[in-house]
């Protein structure tokens, strides 16, 4: 049984870490883009971002004042048990969010969509979102937080099987050009593409592909992996850099996730995880020990299974 106060501690610590320390995979990705960027202004922006992350880590202040929408992804080991159960864990996550808002501090970003009421703690109806997944044969719980920029860079479209890869590429370009102009999506981004599923699954997969996989990670299906690299290059050949200036830095990486979909359709979603790609994960072990990292390791073989049964191997 994992004591509930372990989750209070872990959920707060990752909120703080995500807000302040840029994940190393993303930082190295941007650093290598500086060398490839021949345009003065675009390379100035990238270098300034590197300075910004240093200032954030050095001063222990948030890297971006726009908190985005802080949220949690939880992966529960099938053999884990939590003191007070899942309701207690959800309560711990809401507490940690309110505490981080005050103590980091994070800008209170969450308001009611109609009445614009703000409880000044990033907590409200359906906020923070908590998404759940499971993992066989283990007794730990992984708690991941993501603070994704909220307003720009995401779109969805119902394509049809006949639209094929061309349709995917066109929609991908449409989205990147539209949101890349003037840099509204704060590129270079980790781009997530969701393909298939139902509409909501399609959105969810694309978002998770952007936010829960690290720079350099490839889809285990080799043809999808090739398409990831092709789309990444395509983004960097638009002719656009950070802030929509002339340049060649649009995508730090591109990740694709798929879900079985309606036989007549091929829904697609595109998401961009911005220059403040904030994510952090804590693994809470059965004995209460907590380990921190920046790779969420969300897409396990179990998550991507296509069989009826799952046999533990």
């Amino acid at each position: 049984m994992i004591a509930i106060d372990r989750f209070d501690e872990a959920a707060f610590a990752i909120m703080q870490q995500a807000a302040i320390d840029i994940p190393e995979d993303y930082r190295l990705g941007i650093r290598s883009m500086v060398d490839g960027e021949t345009q003065d202004l675009s390379s100035f922006v990238l270098k300034t971002m590197l300075d910004n992350w240093e200032a954030a880590s050095g001063d222990r202040r948030p890297m971006c004042a726009d908190t985005g929408l802080p949220r949690y992804y939880i992966k529960v080991g099938n053999d884990a048990s939590i003191e007070g159960g899942f309701v207690a864990l959800e309560r711990a996550l809401r507490h940690a969010t309110a505490r981080a808002t005050q103590e980091v501090p994070l800008r209170p970003n969450r308001v009611h969509p109609l009445w614009r009421t703000d409880s000044n703690n990033n907590v409200g109806i359906n906020a923070p979102e908590v998404e759940w997944s499971f993992e066989p044969n283990v007794d730990w719980v992984d708690v991941t937080t993501v603070h994704k920029g909220g307003l720009f860079g995401t779109d969805y479209r119902m394509l049809f099987p006949g639209d094929g890869i061309d349709g995917i590429k066109r929609f991908y370009l449409d989205t990147l050009v539209a949101f890349g102009k003037r840099g509204l999506c704060c590129q270079p981004a980790i781009i997530g593409v969701g393909l298939g599923g139902s509409k909501d699954t399609c959105m969810q997969l694309g978002k998770q592909a952007a936010c829960l996989r690290t720079v350099g990670d490839r889809n285990p299906d080799s043809k999808i992996a090739d398409l990831e690299l092709e789309l990444k290059d395509m983004a960097n050949n638009i002719g656009m850099g950070p802030m929509g200036f002339v340049g060649s830095s649009m995508a730090v990486d591109c990740h694709i996730e798929v879900g079985y979909t309606h036989t007549g359709g091929m829904p697609i979603s595109v998401h961009t995880f911005c220059l403040s790609s904030r994510r952090a994960t804590a693994r809470v072990h059965a004995d209460g020990k907590i380990e921190y990292r920046t790779d969420p390791r969300w897409f396990t073989p179990y998550m991507r299974r296509d069989t009826v049964d799952w046999s533990a191997s």
């Binding site: 100035f44 922006v45 300034t48 971002m49 300075d51 910004n52 992350w53 200032a55 954030a56 001063d59 202040r61 948030p62 890297m63 971006c64 004042a65 726009d66 920029g149 840099g183 704060c186 950070p242 802030m243 911005c274 220059l275 403040s276």
Partner: peptide, 14 residues
């Protein structure tokens, strides 16, 4: 004038 990035929150905070 435009900010840079645009996520230079920490530098501007300084």
């Amino acid at each position: 004038l435009t900010t840079v990035g645009y996520g230079t929150g920490a530098l501007l905070g300084r």
